[in-house]
Design a protein around this nucleic acid. Structure first.
Lengths: 254, 254
DNA sequence: TTTTTGCCGATTGTCGACAATTGACATGAT
DNA sequence: ATCATGTCAATTGTCGACAATCGGCAAAAA
């Protein structure tokens, strides 16, 4: 009776050191990801890119026809997405793409402030040169993408920056919570459309954060980060309110 | 085509106002909860009470025999638990009850400090007399349970207090994150056994928090809360290290 | 006309079975 | 003795089908 899992929650991609150290890899790992993962990924993609509108109904039969699978993997993928808050399930009516109210966005950003400030406060004591260099490169990437690059890419790289910050805290659970929030934010942002008029400004607003982090100035770091997120929050909420106060269409009758 | 969910994420129990306002309810609602929910609940219960030891292997067949159902509900329940971090799944080996390392506990409590302090900082501006009264009652309950009451009940009521605090923030997502953390903490605490020598002390340590909250003194509130959680963290981590540095048994051979 | 009742289609909840893959063991070669 | 290979049981991944349940519509009664 073998009763121990192979690896707990190590990164699935981290299949390094196969042979002797320093050998050039001949092949890349090939993973047979199960249908559940693929389906969940595709649905997530459709939601965050806005191809699937909030409130859209998803029936298992329809999805299974579309994916060419049986309903079982669909169900599991849907449950996965439900636990991430991307869809909600009405007991016997099916799944619906999550609708975001203005209140939800407020909650998300409010929580995000607390989370990232805490992460930064921890990270400033633990961060090493490698992490700082990574953050610098990330800002660089954002600048180059500001000239050429889609809106979605810019948002994505912005999220990556903040993710790296959370990662620098060394707290896995904190990072997981950030990831959960990030999906929800993406879900809400894409349906707003253009967010920043000037992409360069988006890239630039990260520099004070990095500066304070480099100098080890906790107060300035927290202030800069709080300001940065609050600005984003105001922009999002305002734009969101402008587009109609809710992603859910009002009921036509009654 | 009807394309709107009946209710988004309102409480399922909240089936009030059936008839005219003020009528006495004749019957209580009867809910036919599906197998997945029941199974997930039972497994969770078994894990947090320690009946299922960390690292224990769970095969679908065994569980389906035990529950008397097919494997489908088992699978979905297991996935649900996995998303909550109570079990981990090795791709084709099955599910294993999550093992907690000392590092995990450190992460959990570290995150908890950030989360609850943020919650308190928000709540202090929004909290009303009703919430404060609720917190007071909760402390009372803890005192009475200190004399008579099981260890698990005391822990449970302690968690309830902190949960109410998070709830007072009015931020649904923050509350959700706390709930996630709470299950993980329960998962780790029960296997340690007795935590506080004096249950009265456990109840008493909450009073400074409530006092500061009542007076609207933010600094004192945060300090009291930080101290309270840090004490708990130290106690847990220390006891945890004492019992063997990890919930996972070391490999016997090798 | 309004309300109640019965029915029906649509959709999920659950099941049993098959196929694919894994890890472990035994066998054979070096 | 050690390593590689082939085989096998165990377990998951996936499928198609059946039954239970729900929401809505139409018909009948008031």
């Amino acid at each position: 009776m073998d009763d121990r899992p192979g690896d707990q929650d190590r990164d699935r991609q981290g299949a390094d050191r196969i042979g002797a150290p320093g050998d050039a890899r001949l092949f890349s790992v090939v993973t047979a990801t199960d249908l559940v993962t693929q389906i969940a990924r595709q649905i997530t993609e459709a939601i965050v890119t806005g191809r699937l509108k909030p409130g859209a109904r998803l029936t298992e039969l329809q999805l299974s026809r579309e994916f060419g699978t049986s309903r079982a993997p669909i169900r599991e993928a849907a449950r996965l997405l439900e636990s991430q808050g991307l869809v909600v399930s009405s007991p016997r009516r099916g799944f619906f793409v999550r609708t975001l109210e203005a209140e939800d966005l407020r909650d998300i950003y409010e929580l995000r402030i607390g989370l990232e400030l805490h992460a930064a406060s921890i990270a400033i004591d633990r961060i090493g040169p490698a992490d700082i260099a990574g953050l610098e490169r990330q800002i660089e990437k954002m600048y180059t993408l500001a000239d050429q690059g889609s809106f979605e890419q810019q948002i994505f790289e912005d999220f990556t920056f903040h993710r790296m910050l959370c990662q620098a805290s060394g707290n896995r659970r904190l990072l997981r919570v950030y990831d959960e929030l990030a999906t929800e934010m993406r879900c809400g942002i894409t349906l707003i459309g253009k967010l920043y008029d000037d992409p360069h400004r988006l890239a630039g607003t990260h520099e004070p954060i990095l500066e304070a982090l480099k100098e080890g100035d906790r107060d300035r770091l927290l202030a800069a980060l709080r300001y940065h997120i609050a600005v984003a929050q105001d922009a999002v909420v305002e734009l969101f309110a402008g587009t109609g106060a809710s992603t859910r269409e009002r009921g036509s009758g009654s």
